[in-house]
Amino acid sequence: MSGGGAGQQGGRRDSGSFEREPARRIFASELRECRYQFREGDDEKSPTFVLLPTGERCNRVFVVGTLTEKQRQGDQNIFYRGRVVDPTGTFFVMAGSYQPEAMQQLARIETPAFVAVIGKPSLYQTPDGAYLVSVRVESITIVDKETRELWILDAAKATLDRLDAAAGGASPDAVKAKEQYATLDPAVFRKMTYDALAQVKI
């Protein structure tokens, strides 16, 4: 898939059938660096992607980490914010009234806890110009420590696969990533991956 380029990753919508966007495995430090968001096609329902610095589009993420904080916000429109920590950094997650199921799940979980989060990343810019990537939760469940460790391995493998594919091939997404993230050195992400793996004790 990594070599398959945009056509394959964008799903098989061109032939009329629906293919669900896969949930990417990505570390917090990489997701935090995302600055480029785009849309495939002009259709109302066409998906929005953030472009990962390692050169792949991403419409959905699967992350496992520790829910360290959660906060209820809003009066009329209640929503929950949370922080999920992985070995490399923090994911900002949120669930609002458009994700009632996810919000109920998040409301019930007591911090701290290992959680598995499936959600959609989106990119915001604050008034002072800083970028913020948050994950709109589709579902969040409590998991065990082993799942967290399996995820670190899984995310490490996915990150290395992306780095290798971007270094070797020239898929349209990898090329675009090199343009958009010209100042980011891929070696940083390799180092990040190594550090994350080193935290897993077997």
Binding site: E146, L153, A156, K157, T193, Y194, L197
Partner: peptide, 14 residues
């Protein structure tokens, strides 16, 4: 389940 070999292999790769 966790597989030991995989962890080591990934560390080497990274």
């Amino acid at each position: 389940k966790m597989e030991n070999g995989e962890h080591a292999a990934l560390l080497n790769r990274a």
